[in-house]
Design a protein around this nucleic acid. Structure first.
Length: 417
DNA sequence: TCTGGGGTCCTAGGACCC
DNA sequence: TCTGGGGTCCTAGGACCC
C-alpha cells in the first residue's frame, strides 16, 4: 500500500504556528508581490476566497469578510517542510517528497494495520511540528490521492482514509468528478466527458485501449491506476534537476533595457547557485520577457531567445553574459514589460555520460531487447534503471507509437507492448 | 498600479546521418 | 516502375502538477 501525506493549507498552517491568533480565522497567504492567493485557511475558503484570486480585485470584499492577509515567507515554509519530511523518513525508508507539502510513503509490510499506523503518524507530526496533515492510503498513487482528498473533506475521517478494497474504491470514485482526478484537469476532463466519462468510476471502468486512443499513454496509465494496477512507483531517488528557472513579475511596468538587464543578471545568479549546489553545468541559457497579458488594450509582446554556450558552465559571469546576449535579441523599446525570466537547460553531470540503449523490433528483436535490458541492469545503477527502461521502451517502438503504461524493466512486459 | 513561480512529461515534426 | 531501415537531435507547444 501507498500512503499520501499532505499538509493541510500548508502555508497558512505555518503562519499560524508563530501567530496563534490566526487560528479559527479566515487567513490568506499571498504570492510574491502580494499578487494573488496561494493558500487559504478553511475559514477563508468558506467565505469564498478562491485559489489564485488577485488581491487587488478582491481587497474590499475580503476586508468585509474579515480576511487576514499574510505575505509569503518561503524560508519558513521550506524549513517546516523539512521537519515534516524527516519524521516521515523515520517511519519508512521509501518516501518520495512530491512537493513542499506532500510526500508518498511506502506502507508495504504493514498489512492490516495501515490505518492505525497512519493515525499514529498524523498525531506524531502534529505534536512535533504543529502542522496538521491528512493521509490517504491505497494500492496506487492515483488512488492514494483520491483517498487523501476524502480524508480532507470528510470530517468523520479524522484526517485518515484508506481505500483498500474494490468496493470502497468504487464507492469513493463514483463520487468524484473526472476533473478532480490527479492528472486530469479542465481540458482533458472535457474530452473525457465527451466520451461519456464523467466520474472517476467511469474512468476506472473504461477500456484502457479507449483511454490510450483519447489521451495516449498518460491517460491510459491514470485509468489503470484507478483500477488498482500500479503503474507509478514510489520514487525515492533524488535525481538532478532537468532545468532551472528564475523569473519574476515586476509589479509595475518596466520599459528600460538597463532595468531588464539588472533583473536578468539577478535571476541568473540565483539559478546558478542552484545549479552549482547540484554539481551541474548548463549548456544553454534562455531569456524571456513579456508584457502584461491582463491588459488586453495594450500592445502585447512576448519573446524568448536561447543562447548555447560553447562549453557548459556553472560560472555566473559566463551565464549572465549569455543571458544578456539573449535579452539583446528580444528587447523591443517602447513596450511596457510585466515579467522576465531565465531558464538554464541542457545540463551536464560531472561524471560519466549516460546514453540510452536501443533495441528494435524485427525477427531478432526479442532477443536483442533482452540483451539490451540485461546490459541496462548490469551497467547502470539502480537509480537510473527506471529511466533506462523508458529509453528502451521508446526505442523499441517509437515509430509505432507504443509506450508501455508502466515503468518497468521486466522484458516480458515490454515484449507484450 | 496592482493578476505567482516554479517544474515535469509527452507529442509532433523537421533536418540530418549512414 | 520501383524507391529501406534504423537512428540522432532539435524545437515548439500542450497539458498538467503544486
Amino acid at each position: 500500500m501507498i500512503g499520501l501525506v499532505d499538509c493541510n493549507n500548508f502555508y497558512v498552517s505555518c503562519e499560524r504556528l508563530f501567530q496563534p491568533g490566526l487560528r479559527g480565522r479566515p487567513v490568506v497567504v499571498l504570492s510574491n508581490n502580494d499578487g494573488c492567493a496561494v493558500a487559504r485557511s478553511e475559514e477563508a475558503k468558506q467565505v469564498g476566497v478562491k485559489m489564485g484570486d488577485p488581491w487587488h480585485l478582491h481587497r474590499a470584499a475580503w476586508k468585509r469578510s474579515g480576511v487576514i492577509i499574510r505575505s509569503s515567507n518561503y524560508a519558513l515554509y521550506g524549513d517546516m517542510s523539512n521537519r515534516v519530511m524527516s519524521i516521515l523518513r523515520k517511519l519508512s525508508p521509501g518516501i518520495e517528497v512530491y512537493s513542499i507539502d506532500e510526500a508518498f510513503v511506502d506502507f508495504g509490510g504493514m498489512t492490516g494495520r495501515e490505518e492505525q499506523v497512519a493515525r499514529d503518524l498524523r498525531a506524531t507530526i502534529l505534536q512535533w511540528t504543529g502542522i496538521p496533515v491528512s493521509i490517504g492510503i491505497a494500492p496506487t498513487k492515483t488512488l492514494a490521492k483520491v483517498a487523501n482528498r476524502s480524508a480532507k473533506k470528510e470530517s468523520a475521517s479524522g484526517g485518515v482514509r484508506a481505500l483498500l478494497t474494490d468496493e470502497v474504491q468504487q464507492m469513493a470514485l463514483s463520487k468524484l468528478d473526472v476533473e478532480d482526478i490527479w492528472g486530469v484537469a479542465t481540458r482533458l476532463g472535457k474530452r473525457l466527458r465527451a466520451l461519456g466519462i464523467a466520474t472517476a468510476a467511469d474512468m476506472r471502468n473504461a477500456a484502457p485501449e479507449a483511454l490510450r486512443k483519447e489521451g495516449g499513454v498518460v491517460v491510459e496509465r491514470i485509468g489503470r491506476e484507478l483500477r488498482g494496477e500500479r503503474c507509478l512507483q514510489i520514487d525515492d531517488a533524488t535525481r538532478p534537476a532537468k532545468s532551472i528557472m528564475a523569473s519574476r513579475s515586476f509589479g509595475r511596468p518596466v520599459t528600460e533595457l538597463s532595468e531588464l538587464e539588472e533583473a536578468v543578471a539577478t535571476f541568473v545568479s540565483r539559478a546558478a547557485e542552484k545549479l552549482r549546489r547540484q554539481h551541474l553545468t548548463a549548456g544553454t541559457v534562455t531569456t524571456f520577457i513579456h508584457t502584461n497579458p491582463f491588459r488586453q488594450t495594450e500592445r502585447q509582446y512576448s519573446a524568448s531567445a536561447l543562447v548555447r554556450l560553447s562549453v557548459a558552465s556553472s560560472h555566473t559571469p559566463k551565464l549572465i553574459q549569455a543571458a544578456l546576449q539573449a535579452l539583446q535579441e528580444i528587447y523591443r523599446p517602447g513596450l511596457r514589460y510585466a515579467k522576465a525570466g531565465i531558464l538554464l537547460d541542457d545540463f551536464e553531470f560531472a561524471g560519466t555520460e549516460q546514453k540510452h540503449l536501443w533495441a528494435h523490433g524485427d525477427s531478432e528483436g526479442d532477443r536483442r531487447l533482452m540483451v539490451a535490458l540485461d546490459r541496462v541492469n548490469r551497467e547502470w545503477g539502480r537509480d537510473t534503471l527506471k529511466m533506462a527502461a523508458c529509453g528502451v521502451m521508446k526505442g523499441w517502438s517509437m515509430r509505432a507509437e507504443h509506450l508501455s503504461p508502466r515503468y518497468t524493466t521486466r522484458w516480458e512486459d515490454l515484449l507484450r507492448v
